[in-house]
Nucleic acid binder design. Sequence first.
DNA 1: TTCGCTATTCGCAAAACAACGAACAGCTAT
DNA 2: ATAGCTGTTCGTTGTTTTGCGAATAGCGAA
Lengths: 99, 99
Amino acid sequence: MSLKTVKTDKQIRTARYAKAMGHPVRMYVLELLSNQSCCYSGDLSDELPIAKSTLSQHLKELKDAGLIQGEIESPRIKYCINKENWKEAQQLFKQFLGI
Amino acid sequence: MSLKTVKTDKQIRTARYAKAMGHPVRMYVLELLSNQSCCYSGDLSDELPIAKSTLSQHLKELKDAGLIQGEIESPRIKYCINKENWKEAQQLFKQFLGI
DNA sequence: TTCGCTATTCGCAAAACAACGAACAGCTAT
DNA sequence: ATAGCTGTTCGTTGTTTTGCGAATAGCGAA
């Protein structure tokens, strides 16, 4: 392994997931979704003390990381955990943390 | 629980650990330390393609998050995992990820 | 005291992040 | 066509992060 690629793809992916989890609001959203299957953006913004636009940005970050996905149910959007990537994240952190 | 404190202390702490892990260099350092007990800053900077000062910043971030600690062995510094907080991180992520 | 070493801190620039309000987009009902 | 709803995007501001080289700090040996 050359000096230029010391970090493995696994470490990069784990870091990406960790980055997405690195804000309390996103952590809250992920915990809620992993416990109750799905929720609506509107419900979240009713509960959280942040602007709708800020929540939207956080949801976008979680989507970009691949941890959640949203389905349009006009006029609302239903968010849920992306099971495939959630499983991958579970594996990566299990291995990384040794649990 | 009032609207102003929706996020729990646990979520905040987990997010803090996640933030510290949210960069590939720090992920690399943590993985190395969890596998081999300890290492020297100098050895890390020989391996990683980043400036010494940049590595120092990353090590400081991991220390600030409480995940690692350093012992001075003049003229070098030996870094190792902070076992107590590592255990806490294991617990928090185990619970959060459901593994 | 000086030198040489390791490692950190400082100052800088650029990029990324996080908050917001306003404007916009898409949809459905009227 | 318009109104009302939900949710996103844009532009802005302020803060934090990330990279670096230069300067500094601490230590031990000579």
